[in-house]
Amino acid sequence: MSLRLSTVILPVDRWHEGGCEKWQRAEDLGFHAAYTYDHLSWRTFRDGPWFGAIPTLTAAAAVTQRMRMGTLVTSPNFRHPVTLAKDLVTLDDVSDGRITLGIGAGGNGFDATTLRGSDEEPWTPRERADHFDEFVPLLDRLLREPSVTQEGRFYAAHEARNIPGCVQRPRLPFAVAATGPRGLRLAARYGQAWVTTGDPKLYETGTPEQSVAAVRGQISRLGAACEETGRDVSELDKILLTGFTPGRPLRSFDAFVNFAGTHFDLGLTEIVVHWPVPDSDFAMETELFERIATEALAQFG
């Protein structure tokens, strides 16, 4: 087993003012994949530029050749399975089969209220999980079958057609972000990969050692969920999105190598680092970032 390194490029640059060059540079640096967030806006970037994920990925697919790409992650907060499936089939075609769909239940940020009336409350965690439980199986069907009719509690499809289907067969891969029991069961049943950011409760006050223990526990619970479904947990790639765990693994080259080695030993197969964004939580010297991209994982196969 080898450890892969990927990046997530926030959609904050106009395409012809730096956006295009980032995606091309990511491929030149040898990243396994480049992802982007699928939000309507996000955290401290809310009042600045923020572009759509699917058009951005389509443009990136047209100017790259080898690198995989995808969302990290898409959620039901503002997506419907029928329209999302049509976009994904198109994107998989444009990229010639290089798309991975990172997908999660979503959170209570800006996306959770943008499409709702001013008197409506965001979904509770249980309601988000309920929607996710229905969203993922329907999306799976829509990407596998040429025509789908299904009436659910939250989502309906009536003769929804996706012809000719995905370039990747039987469909493009799902990377399911999950830490709770229901999400882990969805990852075990439908995922080709599993995504974690660690334990968010530890980010502010926890220690790196506590974070490692939390991820170890998550992987153990993923294994139990896979066993329940009759699946070998080794079939799933295990992806860690950095930037939300205690400590500062990107403060130096050696710090990142140690961080990567620790998580490789846990069974992680892919680590994702944020492309530097000046004057943000993701600010970083370009020279250090590019050295990590090209040299850090050499000893991990």
Rank of each mutant, 00 (worst) to 15 (best):
A53P: 06
A62Y: 00
G223A: 14
L142G: 00
T207R: 10
V63M: 02
A296C: 01
A193N: 06
F110Q: 11
H263T: 04
G102Q: 04
G52N: 12
R25Y: 02
G109Q: 14
E285F: 01
A112L: 07
D232N: 15
P125A: 09
A85P: 01
H80T: 05
A26W: 11
F78S: 06
R231F: 06
P49T: 10
G104V: 08
V233L: 09
F259S: 06
S6C: 08
Q299S: 13
R98G: 05
L202P: 12
D38S: 08
Q192G: 05
T207K: 05
A293P: 05
D140T: 01
F51W: 12
A255V: 01
Q24T: 15
L202H: 13
R182W: 04
V277L: 03
E285W: 00
T56Y: 04
P146W: 09
F300M: 03
R68V: 06
L268M: 15
R141W: 00
E235H: 13
P181Q: 09
L29D: 07
G243Q: 13
L29I: 09
P164E: 08
S147Y: 03
I99H: 03
A26Y: 11
C166G: 02
D130H: 12
H39K: 11
A283Y: 02
T207W: 09
R66P: 00
E159A: 09
D47N: 14
P246L: 12
T58Y: 08
P11A: 08
E204K: 15
T269S: 14
N258F: 02
H80I: 01
L288P: 01
N258A: 15
F132Q: 07
Q168F: 07
A112W: 06
C20T: 05
G117C: 03
E121K: 07
A175Q: 03
G18V: 08
T262S: 11
R126V: 15
L57K: 05
H131V: 03
L91N: 07
L139I: 01
P208A: 11
T207C: 09
Y35M: 13
T113R: 13
K86Y: 02
V136G: 04
L40K: 10
L240C: 11
A105Y: 02
L241A: 13
A112S: 15
A26C: 11
R43T: 08
D119N: 13
L142K: 00
R221C: 00
S41N: 12
D28F: 03
L268R: 07
A283M: 03
A34W: 12
L138E: 00
E204R: 15
V257I: 08
I163C: 10
N77R: 01
I271E: 08
V8I: 15
G247I: 11
L29Y: 10
T196L: 02
